[in-house]
């Protein structure tokens, strides 16, 4: 590999690695959002389960 080839490969690798790093960051963020959605769904289910009991007390 000549010196020019090494520098050209390095320049292209920089672009590739920056984009890859960006995609990895986005993927991590997406995983966090997925976790949060699951937590919120669980919270909503719990609230829904408590809701009829509250209503029953109010009516009674």
């Amino acid at each position: 590999m000549t010196t020019a080839e090494k520098y050209v490969a390095a320049a292209y690798a920089v672009v590739f690695l920056v984009v890859l790093a960006y995609v990895l960051i986005i993927a991590t963020k997406l995983a966090r959002l997925e976790r949060e959605v699951a937590e919120l769904a669980e919270l909503a289910r719990e609230q829904r389960a408590v809701e009829p009991e509250r209503k029953a007390v109010a009516v009674g």
Partner: peptide
């Protein structure tokens, strides 16, 4: 982010 790529690729080109 594109600015970082410009500066780094430019630097590599400048060196050669």
């Amino acid at each position: 982010i594109y600015g970082v790529m410009t500066l780094v690729t430019g630097s590599i080109w400048a060196k050669i």
